[in-house]
Design a protein around this nucleic acid. Sequence first.
DNA 1: TTTTTTCACTTGACTAAGCAAGTGAATGTT
DNA 2: AACATTCACTTGCTTAGTCAAGTGAAAAAA
Lengths: 147, 147
Amino acid sequence: MRNHTIGTLTWIRMMRFTTQSNQLSNEFLKRFDLTTAQFDVLIQIKTYAPITQSQLAEKVTVTQGGMSRMLVRLEKEGLIERKQNWKTKTISLTVKGEQMIDAATPSQLHFQSSFFEEALTEEEMKALYIAMTKIEKHSREKKLPPA
Amino acid sequence: MRNHTIGTLTWIRMMRFTTQSNQLSNEFLKRFDLTTAQFDVLIQIKTYAPITQSQLAEKVTVTQGGMSRMLVRLEKEGLIERKQNWKTKTISLTVKGEQMIDAATPSQLHFQSSFFEEALTEEEMKALYIAMTKIEKHSREKKLPPA
DNA sequence: TTTTTTCACTTGACTAAGCAAGTGAATGTT
DNA sequence: AACATTCACTTGCTTAGTCAAGTGAAAAAA
């Protein structure tokens, strides 16, 4: 089991880190009665409202089905509103939703950054940012190798 | 909504990338009848067997409950065996499980690396590896800030 | 020896997501 | 006008995971 190249080691460290940091983030957001996934969706709505479900799904890398369910939960909690508009549903925040996201945003963004800021130097962070930008873009365009 | 520092931007790119790459990875592993989560668990078992459930859970950053469920599925598929040993259950691969993981490992590891290798230079990859090692370690030790 | 504690694992109720089939309204086609 | 297509969204079934309460057997305490 020494097939592990620098690439595969990076991959598993990144996977472990994201699950770990997601868990901590969820724990952190409990004080605002939100989950990481909900925070992510709400902040997109706040930025782009009014927006349709499919556009929203695209922005957070989720299928339409997943988005449909997420929005049902958020609507049940009274954080968002959906209006039927021609054949589209337009999504926007309720007052309650706006208050929650505004309350949570500063500390949550700060918490997210702290994972990097506490472990890296200024230059390392810049390099990491550039690398992630490239990798993320590449992965969006990547296609499966043939079987 | 311009609270976005380099840290928060890095965070969301990394999150988007990992979900994206997980999805592609799942699609890729379909040809071996596996999911990414299953591959991850099986390779740990192959490396560390015989191992207990809690140790395994720790290794893949999952709760004991989550591991219990995962192993039930893998056992139902006939990929692993669990033996009651004193109060512990010891997990090991079946022949079928061993065959599957051996068949999938080379291409899956190569596929994982390709996300980085195709988008970065040699130096960038090294720097990324070092950064991820630091960050991952830091996140394991990180504690929640006080409310 | 009985009782309590501890420990490894399981389970019920839940969030989150995927895929694929289904629904229902608007728009095109014949 | 009647039928077919497209499009945005929903829904059933499944994997994957969380938390917290529950189980059952071994070890420690009474």
